[in-house]
Design a protein around this nucleic acid. Structure first.
Lengths: 108, 108
DNA sequence: AGAATATGCAGGTAAATGCCTGCATGTAAA
DNA sequence: TTTACATGCAGGCATTTACCTGCATATTCT
């Protein structure tokens, strides 16, 4: 395995629709068990486990055991960091484009 | 090929570090040619072309031809949409966590 | 026109990815 | 304690991915 940065892991994790769905499910109700999450996915439990493992490696999900069950909790911090450190700077471009468009429209 | 949504394509495109670097490069200076972009990557020109194709398919980059050159421009709109429609809702979680932490600290 | 430059297009390949099945383990309920 | 349930672990397999090389095309410069 290559040495991957945190940012790398987060973006990689978000690159899969199943994993985004898992985050969506946890956003609706936090602390769900593996089985509960599986009910909403069209795949084997073991596959879901792998996806959750990737989310956990990216620090987007953390877990605890309660008896024989495993509870999953969402961690929004890495998402926020990625936004702050990476996505935000493209906002500058976007706003300048909007400004440009606006002044062009006014010139007509 | 499967039917992929726009959101899908954007996240998939962002999942690769080379493609994020390309966006970074275009953010620094918009409208660069293929060759200019290649100079900053450690791979064959043809590989970079493929990455740019994926960014274009995700509508994150648009291009024009100027003579024999191809100019690449960044399009920040899809990034903003993804943020608004997807990332933002996790902010609610994050802020509530912060609030929770704050009140717990105050209780000590 | 001929040479140099910028890019396009088409396979080919090793590794990563996403999914599966089968079986093992640990915990709770009867 | 036996049985059912929730999850863990390992290996296999088809597809996708990210890279490559080789050659074709189009534009500019001499």
């Amino acid at each position: 395995m290559k040495d991957t940065t945190n940012t790398d892991r987060v973006f990689k994790a978000l690159g899969d629709p199943t994993r985004r769905k898992l985050l969506d499910l946890l956003c609706e109700r936090n602390g769900q068990t593996l089985n509960e999450l599986c009910e909403h996915l069209a795949m084997a439990r073991q596959s879901a486990t792998q996806h959750l493992g990737i989310l956990e490696a990216a620090n987007l999900v953390s877990t605890t055991k309660r008896g024989r069950e495993k509870l999953h909790f969402i961690n929004p911090v890495p998402l926020h960091e990625v936004y702050e450190r990476w996505v935000r700077k493209f906002e500058v471009q976007r706003l300048s484009l909007l400004h440009q468009l606006k002044t062009e429209l006014e010139g007509e």
